[in-house]
Amino acid sequence: MEKQHNWPLWEIFIRSRQGLDHKHVGSLHAADSAMAIENARDVYTRRMEGISIWVVESKYVHASNPDEASSFYDPANDKVYRHPTFYDLPDELKHM
C-alpha cells in the first residue's frame, strides 16, 4: 500500500444555535478527528457561526446517485396529500 502523506479530508457540520440542525458548511484537512473538530472551530466558527460541530471523514459519506434522481424523488411529486394544505377546510375552523 502506498504511504499516505496528506491529511485526510473531513466534512464539517455546524449547529448555528440551539434548536437548529447541524448543517454542512464545507470541508477541511486534519490528521485525526480531534484535530478536525479543532480545525473546524478555528476555520468555520471565527464569527460566532456555531455552538456545536460534527466532523465526518469524507470517504465515509455515501451519497445517492443523481442519475437516479427521477426514480428516487419524482414519485413524491403526486403525493400532495402528505402536505397539510391539501385538505380543504373552512376558514372558520381555528387551531388546526
Partner: peptide
C-alpha cells in the same frame, strides 16, 4: 505548515 494550522495559530 498547513492552512488549517496557520489559521489556528493566528487565532
Amino acid at each position: 505548515p498547513i492552512l488549517e494550522q496557520d489559521i489556528a495559530l493566528s487565532n
